[in-house]
Design a protein around this nucleic acid. Structure first.
Lengths: 229, 229
DNA sequence: TTCAAAACCTGATAATTGTCATAGTTCTCC
DNA sequence: GGAGAACTATGACAATTATCAGGTTTTGAA
């Protein structure tokens, strides 16, 4: 399953696209390939990271344990995204835990390789900066949603997000299946409340289910709910 | 009130510390000095920015209007901090509005000057990146607090934050006086709920007031509350 | 100084959300 | 293929928080 970064499609989605051939070669030579099984963790909150992870396949949840014992999922990272860069750049311990939501394939790139390129290639650093600027905007938007929208609106928004970012199969069911608990932890609510709202949405025709799978049945309806109608 | 950036103390707190003499001269020559009165806005959400603001004095709230008509304050920026860099770096319209909470003095630096330095000086870009990494961490923490802590805990936390980041006078009253509405908008709650909790904290001896001024009277007590005791 | 507007405060009530208890369902793995 | 674990579901109730309505106090501008 190993391959050369130069030919990696995934790279097109992240800051590594700004690297030149020589730099990519260095990454290719120093990287290690890993598989992580569903439920296993890439790293835990507070750990010191020696490099960053580039996701080739699968999805990871980035979460933080709060004082009341609940995990808050802050972000879901999928194919093409890089995990751990914030901590490596700031030279701090990680602020979040990363856990595989399904089976994953990732490349681990040692921090020295990254630091090396950042000192030599301003374009790469700038590209990393742009990606982080984007992450920051998203985080700010999440803050506003968390504090100003009702749980019902946030659940609706979560399903629209899952549909638009992870897609659906030919029958209209979400490709990324999260447990009810994970959905609650994205939304920031009690699992029971989340389940109740999903049931309600099903009754109202906004969602459909088939076994464990959930699908968006009425995107407009959900969108109206999010917008407060 | 004009002065040379080379001698500006404020610069020590932000990414401009990584600039060399020549670059600072360029900033000094292109910057403009502005004063903004309490309540006036530096920019509104959705505007296109032609540069960044470096705060020399005063405090600005960065907020976003949500669908229900309430402002959510995402960050308070004070002396030494830079405002608008995210939007300039990402070359996007601003995501937040910036409004002066009290009278401000700021320097406006055209984006060309910044872009110019970023392309030439990797250390500067890296320093900007580090600051943004820090902002992102703080934003992630806010997300967790918003979704997992009660309003009471968040109010307690807000006062501890105000004390530790903006200081208090010799009588122990907060130097930064926010309206009850602004506090609610930081905490993400209804103004009435916020006022009620402030009253309660006063009765319990956690806070003290004198006219419009509020002071932290029992830091330990507030901290315990935040931690869930 | 005065008066209107804004800010602050409190009570009553309703709506939202969380918690606890319990039961059904699905999944896993021996 | 069956036992136990984990996940999903629902009801009853409690706690939290928002909303509305009415006051008082403070502020700022004429």
């Amino acid at each position: 399953m190993e391959s050369r970064c130069e030919n990696c499609i995934v790279r097109q989605f992240n800051a590594l696209r700004a690297m030149n051939k020589e730099e990519l070669k260095q990454v290719s030579d120093s990287k290690t390939y890993k598989t992580i099984k569903k439920g296993e963790s890439l790293f835990e909150e507070g750990e010191k990271l020696d490099g960053i992870y580039c996701v080739r396949n699968g999805v990871s949840k980035l979460s933080k344990l709060s004082a009341n014992g609940k995990d808050q999922i802050v972000k879901l990272a999928t194919k093409g995204e890089v995990i751990g860069q914030r901590s490596v750049i700031a030279e701090e311990h990680t602020n979040l835990s990363a856990t595989a939501v399904n089976d994953m394939e990732v490349c681990f790139i040692p921090k020295e390789t990254i630091a090396n390129t950042m000192h030599k290639n301003p374009n790469f650093t700038l590209e990393v900066l742009r990606h982080m600027a984007h992450d920051l905007k998203e985080a700010d938007d999440v803050i506003v949603n968390m504090s100003q929208k009702t749980v019902k609106q946030r659940v609706a928004e979560a399903f629209l997000y899952l549909k638009n970012n992870f897609g659906e199969d030919s029958d209209g069911f979400l490709l990324l299946t999260l447990s009810r608990e994970d959905i609650s932890n994205v939304v920031g609510t009690a699992t029971e409340s989340c389940i109740r709202i999903i049931s309600e949405f099903k009754k109202k025709g906004y969602l459909k289910t088939s076994g464990k799978k959930i699908g968006v049945a009425d995107e407009k309806g959900l969108q109206n709910l999010v917008n407060g109608f």
